[in-house]
Amino acid sequence: MTLDLTGRRALVTGGGSGIGRAVVAALVEAGADVAVHYAHSSEGAAQAVADAEAAGRRAVAIGADLTDSAQAQRCVEEATAYLGGLDVLVNNAGHLVGRSPVEEMSDEFFRQVIDLNISTAFFVTRAATKALRASGSGRVVNMASLAAENGGGPGSVAYATAKAGMLGFTKGLAKELAGDGVTVNAVAPGFIGETAFHETFTAPEARERIVSGVPLQRAGTPADVAGAVCYLASDLAAYVTGETIDVNGGVLTR
């Protein structure tokens, strides 16, 4: 059995940059047609579409603020209409936003982090459920984080809380959709270099310290995460649901 996604129709949220962009590329390489959602990375999404088309796949970029349920609904409808259905949903959209200790954290900041990381996944998944059920072998892959399991770095309580919520969302949804042949799993990246996330929020000296504590002695790459996503989206993982794959170089093992 090989990892073959030929003919599968996938929507990747936050697919214009970072890990999401790598996920789009990996899905395309495996044969999938893709809808690339973006909020701010319009140029990256456009390039991802161009790359997919150059590889002979069908692709479309869709801009939307997924914290707005109406826009999330529109995004899914546009993706499903363009692709002719939906087999794979990758809930990748999310952000740390910033670092803030709890005693200084505003209501607005906390709600923003929760909305960007959890509400987006809920709104999109709710809108996509009908199409995923109709697929007969639908796949949902949620993006969690090592922070969900170890509390994250300084000032990331809100983010860790949101990503821990993603794990619960994954397990509950897996049970809810199992009867229709839809699997729901999560990927929890650790320290992934080559992304704007850590360039913005992690100082160079902190990055060096983190990498020195990784058993595999290197930072992860977006492609490392994309490989796990593709596995979960494929028939190789047809009997896997409600699970989380940790992509952290051995920092945390179960």
Score class of each variant (00 low, 15 high):
residue 82 Y to V: 11
residue 100 S to H: 05
residue 43 E to I: 13
residue 221 T to V: 10
residue 235 D to I: 13
residue 62 I to D: 00
residue 89 L to T: 00
residue 166 M to S: 09
residue 156 S to L: 08
residue 220 G to N: 00
residue 46 A to M: 14
residue 175 K to F: 05
residue 200 T to E: 12
residue 56 G to W: 01
residue 83 L to F: 14
residue 163 K to E: 12
residue 59 A to H: 10
residue 58 R to N: 04
residue 185 N to G: 12
residue 146 L to D: 03
residue 154 P to W: 12
residue 107 D to H: 15
residue 108 E to A: 13
residue 51 D to F: 13
residue 121 A to N: 06
residue 222 P to V: 07
residue 244 T to F: 06
residue 219 A to F: 00
residue 251 V to N: 04
residue 42 S to C: 14
residue 85 G to W: 04
residue 231 Y to V: 07
residue 169 F to K: 06
residue 228 A to W: 05
residue 74 R to F: 03
residue 184 V to T: 06
residue 4 D to C: 02
residue 201 F to K: 05
residue 33 D to K: 03
residue 181 G to P: 04
residue 235 D to Y: 02
residue 230 C to W: 00
residue 104 E to L: 13
residue 153 G to P: 11
residue 247 V to H: 09
residue 250 G to C: 11
residue 152 G to N: 07
residue 245 I to W: 02
residue 122 F to Y: 08
residue 208 E to I: 07
residue 89 L to P: 07
residue 115 D to W: 11
residue 76 V to D: 08
residue 253 T to R: 15
residue 125 T to V: 00
residue 101 P to E: 03
residue 2 T to Q: 12
residue 61 A to D: 13
residue 135 S to R: 07
residue 52 A to Y: 06
residue 36 V to S: 03
residue 67 T to D: 03
residue 34 V to I: 01
residue 86 L to F: 13
residue 135 S to D: 00
residue 143 M to F: 10
residue 248 N to E: 06
residue 70 A to K: 05
residue 16 G to A: 15
residue 60 V to A: 12
residue 52 A to R: 00
residue 211 V to D: 09
residue 153 G to A: 14
residue 105 M to T: 08
residue 2 T to H: 15
residue 86 L to M: 11
residue 244 T to N: 10
residue 125 T to P: 06
residue 95 H to Y: 12
residue 61 A to C: 15
residue 132 L to M: 01
residue 27 L to Q: 13
residue 133 R to M: 04
residue 133 R to G: 02
residue 29 E to S: 14
residue 21 R to S: 15
residue 57 R to M: 05
residue 214 V to D: 01
residue 217 Q to C: 08
residue 158 A to T: 02
residue 201 F to S: 07
residue 150 N to I: 13
residue 247 V to M: 06
residue 238 A to W: 05
residue 178 A to M: 06
residue 124 V to S: 03
residue 194 E to C: 08
residue 57 R to V: 02
residue 132 L to C: 00
residue 126 R to K: 13
residue 58 R to D: 11
residue 46 A to D: 07
residue 167 L to T: 10
residue 102 V to F: 05
residue 186 A to E: 03
residue 157 V to H: 08
residue 182 V to E: 11
residue 149 E to L: 10
residue 173 L to V: 11
residue 187 V to T: 10
residue 55 A to H: 05
residue 137 S to N: 09
residue 25 A to E: 05
residue 246 D to R: 11
residue 49 V to D: 09
residue 76 V to C: 08
residue 233 A to Q: 01
residue 134 A to C: 04
residue 245 I to L: 12
residue 137 S to M: 09
residue 164 A to C: 01
residue 24 V to R: 00
residue 80 T to E: 02
residue 65 D to P: 00
residue 89 L to C: 04
residue 98 G to T: 14
residue 8 R to K: 11
residue 236 L to H: 03
residue 138 G to C: 06
residue 200 T to V: 09
residue 140 V to K: 09
residue 156 S to F: 10
residue 155 G to A: 05
residue 30 A to M: 01
